[in-house]
Simulated assay, not measured.
Amino acid sequence: MHVIGVGFGRTGTLSLKVALEELGLGPCYHMREAIASPDHKRLWLEAAQGGPVDWDRLLGGYRSTVDWPGCYFWRELVEAYPEARVVLTVRDPERWYSSTRETIYRLSTWVARVAAPFFPTARGMAAMTDAIIWNGTFGGRFTDREHAIGVFERHIREVRAHVPADRLLVYDVREGWEPLCRFLGVEAPRDRPFPHVNDRDHQKSKIRRARVLVGSLGASLALATLAGMALRRRRR
């Protein structure tokens, strides 16, 4: 492990993932990797519930990690990989909260309330994100704006107090390549702009697709139920 990203989701973590991979510090672990793997969802959930974690097993093959679920275990990762550089992505707290509520919180709510009853993988995702993010990080009070922003700001203070300054970069992805590459000791790409990846529209499109999918599934189940009722009546 060469780079540990300890910033909350929606602070440019996806942009940082892409940037690290372009710099040769990938593959980079992100929530997307956790969602894609049923085994990983289970392992992260067990870790959040206090179970033992073999970090080399969970993150084996990855040279960097950003976003949740990794940032929830930032203290453990910083200790487990003492040679790794630590990047704390930051953002205006008010803008961070609005972005998070509009995207990943809304999507998580849909998954938990609508998709989870139908799909086992959605149940696993809902259990993991609840344990690590909405309950684990925000104590079940994310919708309390003041509380959530307080958690966000306290996290930044705690990281800065815990990680030695020469090992830590406090970083706004709008700063681009230069501070990141200087900190990592690598040359900044001259022919590629910094990858500012804004996935808000992507998150919203996933919510729309989830509504269509679950709506279609619900209609199919309703039709199947009506057909079954009609068949039973005929048999009588």
Rank of each mutant, 00 (worst) to 15 (best):
T11M: 10
F73M: 11
D67F: 01
L88R: 03
A80P: 00
V173Q: 08
R174M: 13
E158T: 09
P120L: 06
T100D: 00
W55V: 07
G176H: 13
P117N: 07
A36V: 04
L45E: 07
C181D: 02
R235G: 06
V111F: 03
I104H: 09
H202Y: 14
R167W: 14
G60Q: 10
R10E: 02
G185V: 13
R42A: 09
V3D: 15
A127Y: 09
H30E: 05
G51K: 09
W68K: 02
K206E: 13
D67V: 08
Y171M: 00
R32P: 02
P93L: 08
I4E: 01
V86H: 05
R200Q: 15
V18E: 13
A230E: 12
D56H: 14
A230C: 07
G50C: 11
V151W: 10
R85H: 01
R85P: 02
V6Y: 06
G176L: 12
H202M: 14
A48F: 06
G26D: 03
R174A: 15
R42Y: 00
F138T: 11
Q203P: 00
P69D: 11
E83D: 14
V114M: 08
E94F: 00
F152Q: 08
R63F: 01
V111I: 15
A116T: 02
P193V: 08
D39G: 12
V3P: 14
L169P: 12
G136H: 08
V6L: 05
L43K: 13
A188K: 11
Q49N: 14
L107I: 00
D166P: 05
I156R: 13
R145V: 09
Y97H: 07
M125I: 07
S216N: 03
G5Q: 03
G5S: 01
G176C: 09
H155P: 09
D67C: 08
Y171Q: 00
W110Q: 05
R157Y: 01
S64H: 01
T89D: 01
A230N: 04
E187G: 00
H202I: 14
R233Y: 04
V173A: 05
P38N: 03
R63T: 07
N198V: 12
D172M: 10
S216H: 01
P117K: 06
Y29A: 14
D130H: 15
A148L: 08
R234Y: 13
L168N: 06
I149D: 09
M31W: 05
A80N: 03
V212C: 05
F194Q: 12
A84I: 06
N198W: 11
A165G: 05
R190L: 07
G70Q: 15
P164K: 01
E83F: 06
D67N: 07
R211V: 14
V111A: 07
L169K: 12
H147D: 02
T11I: 11
V163Y: 12
P117G: 06
F73A: 12
